[in-house]
Design a protein around this nucleic acid. Sequence first.
DNA 1: ATTGTATTAGAACAAGTGTTCGAGGAGAGA
DNA 2: TCTCTCCTCGAACACTTGTTCTAATACAAT
Lengths: 206, 206
Amino acid sequence: MKTLSDKQSRIIDFLHRFLNERGYPPTIRDIQNGCQISSTSVVEYNLRILEREGHIRRVREISRGIELGARRVVRVPIIGHIAAGEPIPVPTSDSWNMEELESLELTEELTRGKEGVYALKVKGTSMIDALIGDGDLVLMQQVATAENGEMVAVWLKREREATLKRFYLESGRVRLQPANEEMAPIYADPENVAIQGKVIGVIRKL
Amino acid sequence: MKTLSDKQSRIIDFLHRFLNERGYPPTIRDIQNGCQISSTSVVEYNLRILEREGHIRRVREISRGIELGARRVVRVPIIGHIAAGEPIPVPTSDSWNMEELESLELTEELTRGKEGVYALKVKGTSMIDALIGDGDLVLMQQVATAENGEMVAVWLKREREATLKRFYLESGRVRLQPANEEMAPIYADPENVAIQGKVIGVIRKL
DNA sequence: ATTGTATTAGAACAAGTGTTCGAGGAGAGA
DNA sequence: TCTCTCCTCGAACACTTGTTCTAATACAAT
């Protein structure tokens, strides 16, 4: 990738600022004014280069048809809370009905493009062994089964307990390993373990 | 806020999808086709209502001049890592020079519009008492001083130790309280405490 | 029936906007 | 000097797009 000319990095910079401030991309003439460029064709010329070099993507013939990078924003519903003695909420078809529901806006940097992502708010300190505290938000992905080593939300039927642990299926039993490695694992009967979702992230706002 | 008509929620929905998929807002005619609406003036009519009700913001006379909600995306630089025995990196003027630096794209939902936000990657398990594990990302805000009760990154000069704790200035001494309330606080001489930044969030990707 | 409000239809205008083109300048290398 | 490439200039064209206007329909309240 060649090094950007002064004018080109000014354009990229302006693109970021404009998009951030206004919510929609600039026109060629916006760029012209914003970057003190003398002619629209000079802008066009440089945009062509920036596109060739992969810095931006353009949709031709369309006003403001400029994108830069993947700035996808995803709306994730907070479908409930997770606490020691309560069952873990599982997404149902109507819990995706955002409009009313509390929700979280995240970049795909965090959801990593996964489908069926939702969030749970942690109540209480019962998940401390997973390095998760009161008020933290747990990012979950809807899954049917889990791979060994993945962090999952499990419901222990017999104990009527909800917890977040790393999941390992060993010969005939399930090992649930706390994230805090200094703590001892729990062993459980596979029948007793209901996997409610995969944990793909934790967010703590202070 | 009145309840949205069917057509209106279809429009809001379409707006979200279009913006998410293409990176720029739709034209009125895009909306017309996308929502099976018969005339541009019907779209105009409903957009006017949506604007009045505060669901969207429009910039008149400008193509694709539609914004919905604050979907501001912020680029946060990861300026270094934080580990037990190492000094905590502090942002310098040139560490904001994103282009080369590793960085994180977040919504303002997480930075909450704060200025001077940066991130540090945690190495090792020394911050476990703050419920922060290896590989976690700590969102920091550049500050000169801290209020009582805020979570701060401190450098204990004498002990040559970096840690994240809640900060309390008590008569003549500083109390540093681990986030995990079961653990005992540390008391330190104010002279020995260098506040490197305020912790505004934690992000864990799994 | 009458009035009024909310909504829709279709068309047309004017400004916004991407694109193109020919001509020209600046600098590097032969 | 000649030539080549990279870059600039200004204007013009044609399509895109926001806006507006008039007429028409639906439906409830008076």
